[in-house]
Structure formats: structure tokens, C-alpha cells
Amino acid sequence: MSKVSVHTESLDISWGLIGLISEIDRFDASWKAIERREGQSLKELKSIATVRSVGTSTRIEGSKLSDEEVNVLLKNMDISRLQDRDQQEVVGYYDALDIIDENFEEILFLKVD
């Protein structure tokens, strides 16, 4: 035979406390909306920074593609349709950045004297 215990507690909650709980709940909902919006902003900033980095770095190597052309190429990337060396440079540089981004925790840096 098992023993069962039942406990009941009484809790007096004032309307002031209910108001505070409600305020916390509204803040939580608005905070989640802010996090979603900020997450989208961070994605957009990363995209802009990536396009500029890829564009600038490949232009140092002689590519003639503008940032706008780099942006269009990266958004519509199809390796089988790369028409020239500039496009190949851009896609290769972008792929290298992507590999670094995905594997940064495993990348070891050596100090060279």
C-alpha cells in the first residue's frame, strides 16, 4: 500500500502584484520582438560587411567588380555559370570566409617569431 500526501497552500495576491506580473509579461513579449528585429539587423549588417570585404579584397587582387556586382553575384551564386576570372575570385574569397565562419572554433593560430 502506498502513502499519498496532499498539501494545499494559500497565497494572497494583491491587484498590485498582478499588475506587476502583467507588466513583466508585456516586457517579455516586447523583448522577444526586439530580439527578432535585432537579429534581422545583424544579418543585414553581416551581409553588407561581407560584400564590402569580398569586393575590396578581390579588387586589391585586380578584380573589377563593384560592390553592387559582388552583391548580385553572391545572391545568385551558381558556380556552373561563372563567366570570368573576377567572378571566380569573388566566389572563392566568399567561400573562404564562409569556411572560416563555420570553423573558427577549430582554427589554430600559430605565433611566428
Rank of each mutant, 00 (worst) to 15 (best):
Ile18Val: 14
Gly55Ser: 15
Ser47Val: 01
Ser53Met: 12
Ile21Gly: 01
Asn71Phe: 13
Ser41Phe: 11
Glu105Ala: 02
Val54Tyr: 01
Leu110His: 05
Ser66Ile: 08
Glu35Arg: 15
Glu35Lys: 15
Asp28Trp: 05
Val54Gly: 02
Ile48Ser: 07
Gln40Asp: 08
Ile21Pro: 02
Ile18Ser: 09
Glu23Thr: 08
Ile18Asn: 09
Lys64Ala: 08
Gln87His: 04
Ser22Trp: 05
Asn103Trp: 06
Leu20Gln: 13
Trp31Ser: 10
Ser14Asp: 06
Ser57Leu: 13
Glu61Ile: 07
Met77Ile: 08
Ser5Asn: 14
Glu9Arg: 13
His7Cys: 11
Ile18Asp: 06
Ala49Phe: 06
Met77Tyr: 05
Arg36Thr: 15
Glu102Ser: 04
Glu9Met: 13
Val90His: 04
Phe109Gly: 00
Ile24Leu: 04
Lys64His: 10
Lys64Pro: 05
Lys43Phe: 02
Ser57Gln: 13
Trp15Ala: 15
Leu45Gln: 11
Asn71Thr: 09
Asp86Tyr: 09
Leu42Cys: 06
Leu73Val: 02
Asn76Cys: 02
Lys43Glu: 08
Ile34Val: 14
Leu108Asn: 05
Phe27Leu: 15
Lys111Gln: 13
Lys3Glu: 15
Val112His: 12
Phe27Asp: 14
Ser63Leu: 01
Tyr94Leu: 01
Val70Phe: 07
Asp98Tyr: 00
Asp95Gln: 11
Leu110Thr: 07
Ser2Trp: 09
Gly16Gln: 05
Asp67Val: 04
Glu23Trp: 06
Ile99Lys: 03
Glu9His: 14
Ile99Leu: 01
Gly92Arg: 00
Asp98His: 01
Ser10Gly: 12
Lys3Phe: 14
Arg52Val: 07
Asp25Val: 10
Leu45Gly: 00
Met77Gln: 10
Asp78Glu: 06
Leu74Asp: 00
Glu35Val: 15
Asn103Gly: 05
Phe27Ser: 12
Val90Glu: 03
Asp98Phe: 03
Leu97Trp: 01
Asp101Ala: 08
Arg26Met: 12
Ser47Tyr: 07
Ile18Pro: 03
Ile99Asp: 03
Ser14Asn: 04
Ser30Ala: 12
Val54Arg: 01
Glu44Val: 06
Arg52His: 14
Ile24Phe: 05
Asp12Glu: 13
Ile34Gln: 10
Ser80Lys: 13
Leu97Ser: 02
Val91Glu: 00
Ile24Ala: 06
Gly39Tyr: 10
Asp95Ser: 10
Val51Thr: 06
Gly92Ile: 00
Arg81Gln: 10
Arg85Ile: 09
Leu20Ser: 13
Leu108Phe: 03
Gly39Cys: 08
Glu69His: 03
Ile79Met: 05
Thr8Tyr: 08
Val70Cys: 03
Tyr93Ser: 06
Lys3Val: 15
Leu11Met: 11
Gly16Ala: 04
Val112Lys: 14
Glu38Thr: 10
Trp31Glu: 14
Leu97Asn: 02
Ser53Trp: 11
Lys75Ser: 07
Val51Cys: 04
Val91Ser: 04
Leu45Tyr: 07
Glu61Arg: 11
Arg59Asn: 04
